[in-house]
Design a protein around this nucleic acid. Structure first.
Lengths: 152, 152
DNA sequence: ACTATTATCAGAATAAAAATCTAATTTATA
DNA sequence: TATAAATTAGATTTTTATTCTGATAATAGT
């Protein structure tokens, strides 16, 4: 599996607007509609494209409070890790969770309505998860950049 | 502008799969195709839905090295902030950048091919930006959760 | 170098979905 | 309660996706 220049351009276009027609894509790539269609299908079947989604405007959805939570576990046993990660996966407020290097074990991105909702999330959801040693939260003051598009 | 329960369910569906047809959505929501169509158009026009995009599988795109960079500015003048934020916006490797509370000023999410590409990014791009005081990088060991779907 | 095999592509035809229109029904409002 | 506004359903039209056929280009093997 190797992506050529056209594939990369196509992925770039689709990562920024997946609703444009194959005809529009064909024009931008100097290809026929069928050629575009088949390349897209190929990229979908290979799993390079994982899904198509609608992105929302946080403020318009009244969910504009963003926090980043660093989390340290008490002990790094296999069991603790699995239990913690499962629990996090079930929290709708957590959009991203990464196991990372450094002083803390995990970094979470949390989105809620406001500070009160965040307090509730912390007290009633996050800190009720087992094996959490300590947490450290940072609040978003401003979103400077947000994109889902990976450029190759 | 106020979103009812049906709008929220619709947004939830579209945030997870924007390629499903209005007929499929209509079935899930117990509505007619036209009703779905008009609600979607309303949500687009209101700006609740900002865009439709394709999401990629990092590994399949050979861009699976993820780093989080904390950055402190030398001074927080209006000018420094604007210049820094503009520079960051032009870096393709930076997918997310947030001005945050806490010890550091900014948190960046960076995606590149591998550690060597990250070194190159740091030396040739990030640290050439003016007004940066100090940086602190953490590397992703494992992606536990990643979604773009905000649940209301 | 030549042939067989595979990839990719273009254009036409068909199927499916989106978009529009009309009218009915529901909901909110005076 | 009457009126206006918003939401909905079903039919129709338009656009797009998908399939099909065949041609062309790239690749591998002898």
């Amino acid at each position: 599996m190797t992506l050529d220049t056209i594939d990369k351009k196509l992925l770039d276009l689709l990562q920024n607007d997946s609703k444009q027609t194959n005809k529009a894509l064909a024009n931008k790539l100097n290809l026929s509609v069928t050629a575009v269609y088949e390349r897209v299908k190929k990229l979908e079947n290979l799993g390079v494209i994982s899904k198509y989604v609608a992105l929302l405007t946080k403020e318009k959805a009244d969910m504009a409070f963003v926090a980043f939570c660093h989390i340290k576990l008490t002990q790094h046993t296999q069991n603790n890790i699995v239990e913690f990660e499962n629990a996090v996966n079930n929290l709708n407020e957590v959009l991203e969770c990464f196991h990372i290097s450094g002083d803390y074990d995990y970094l979470l991105k949390v989105i809620v309505k406001d500070m009160e909702a965040f307090r509730e999330f912390m007290v009633e959801k996050l800190t009720t998860i087992n094996h959490i040693g300590s947490t450290h939260s940072m609040f978003m003051i401003n979103e400077v950049k947000y994109t889902t598009a990976i450029s190759m």
